[in-house]
Amino acid sequence: MFLFGFMAQPLAAQQSLPPAPYAYRQLENPAKEAEAQALMETLRCLTCQSQSIADSDAPMAGDMRHQVRTRIAAGEEPEAIRAWLVERYGDYVSYAPVMSETTWPLFAIPLLLLAGAGSILWRRLRRVR
């Protein structure tokens, strides 16, 4: 009982409002739900930071899922919803990699290394022959 007293402590900071309607309920249309699910898996939970909103039980992640599902149900494109969030939180909110001013070396360096290794290999093999 003593232990339970401790476990109950964090609940003091919990919220009493029920989750948003579409936080834990799937869309009736399976195709739309699949679209929503794919998008939710690539959006970052902002209060937990290392989970996607599909993985998180944080109330804010629930509200984000509600927003994603209702917008998809209303016919909005997944990429438009992602863009709306990126406009507010920056690239940080999205797990989908994009090429930008700061990220281009991540894409360029492997290609350069491959090209370098290829040219060395080519010269060596030519010498052998």
Binding site: D63, R88, Y89
Partner: peptide
């Protein structure tokens, strides 16, 4: 703001 809609729209994360 019962569904955090304004919070999301304004870019607040907590």
């Amino acid at each position: 703001d019962d569904l955090s809609q304004v919070q999301l729209a304004i870019g607040s994360s907590g």
